[in-house]
Design a protein around this nucleic acid. Structure first.
Length: 312
DNA sequence: TGTAGCATCTCGTCTCAGAT
DNA sequence: ATCTGAGACGAGATGCTACA
């Protein structure tokens, strides 16, 4: 069967080839042999009257036409996937579905446990996969690798719908036994002391608090850089170092670990976190349900936040 | 020289259109 | 409804090229 002379199965091969830029790996990705993938590339080359990928040494490089097809082909496949997945109604009580979300371990620690608890109560057939952000989280959304990204507003890109989820401010944490810090911290101490900081991805992109402090002209001494929030308390405890953290995360850890929470001696604006999804999934009832669940849980003053109030 | 990766050849299987 | 042949496609084997 052909659609305008093209076997639509070839679009799947083309997407794998444009992504992997390697015939063997593209074939493995879509469960075809290297020879079958090479043959499919031959048919694609004939259809498009273009080489699409050319061999340069041991590498395959996209031609300009190949380059121009990357996004539209991916978008087409996502639209097909959404059409196949879409049901006119979504009944959480009986639905079987996996949601993939991209977020830092901060949001997966302070927000997702409540979301997952609520989901398992109302929708026992729903499962979750939480991925850490790559260097370009939007790419993960556009490639269909994620149903949602949950990021600071600062990092939400144009082109896909999004909604506000919660707002958070920052505090400073130090080890309870830190002899250099009392009940408060001066701006001078904050600038002079060594900091434990988080950076993300292979490029070590700065976290939100680092972006905000830099924007305010504040330069901190980064003595330890971690790629996860989870490691921060362990790098602070037993040392004279401090860290700047989101309030909810700081109070959560202070509940279990010997940490002291201090007001931030420098001004950092509150930051908003937003949920973003692919425009093609905007009308999908399952996606709409998950959006409502996350926003609802975040807005309902989750159990964790009540505990912070009591602790504070 | 060994390895990685793409192209091509051969053969088997499947699909589909046309004949009966 | 069934049979048959042509064409398309995939898998395995193999050749060729680039590179360390």
């Amino acid at each position: 069967m052909r659609f305008n002379r093209l076997d639509l199965n070839l679009l799947v091969v083309l997407d794998a080839l444009l992504t992997e830029r390697n015939i063997t790996r593209a074939g493995e990705k879509i469960f075809l042999s290297q020879s079958a993938t090479s043959g499919a590339l031959g048919r694609l080359r004939e259809f498009f009257s273009d080489e699409l990928l050319v061999q340069v040494g041991r590498k395959m490089v996209l031609t300009p036409l190949g380059e121009s097809l990357v996004r539209p082909v991916r978008a087409t496949l996502i639209q097909i996937q959404t059409t196949i997945d879409m049901r006119p109604e979504f009944d959480p009580a009986v639905a079987e579905r996996k949601f993939t979300l991209v977020m830092s371990d901060y949001t997966s620690t302070v927000l997702m446990p409540d979301v997952i608890r609520a989901a398992s109560r109302d929708a026992p057939g729903i499962s979750f996969e939480i991925l850490t952000p790559s260097d370009d989280p939007l790419e993960q959304l556009e490639r269909g690798e994620a149903d949602f990204v949950l990021l600071p507003d600062h990092f939400i890109a144009q082109g896909h719908p999004s909604c506000h989820v919660f707002t958070e401010d920052f505090v400073c944490v130090c080890w309870e036994g830190n002899p250099m810090v009392g009940e408060t911290l001066s701006a001078r101490q904050y600038l002079d002391m060594g900091h434990v900081m988080v950076r993300f991805g292979s490029q070590l992109n700065p976290s939100l608090d680092e972006s905000l402090t830099k924007k305010s002209g504040i330069e901190r001494k980064a003595e330890v850089v971690s790629t996860t929030y989870a490691a921060i308390p362990h790098y602070v405890i037993g040392t004279n170092r401090i860290a700047t953290l989101q309030r909810r995360l700081a109070y959560l850890w202070a509940h279990y670990m010997p940490l002291r929470i201090l007001p931030l001696p420098v001004h950092l604006p509150k930051a908003g976190w937003s949920l973003q999804w692919h425009q093609y999934r905007d009308m999908d009832p399952a996606t709409q349900w998950m959006r409502r669940l996350i926003v609802g849980v975040a807005g309902a003053r989750p159990s964790l936040e009540r505990r912070f109030d009591e602790t504070a």
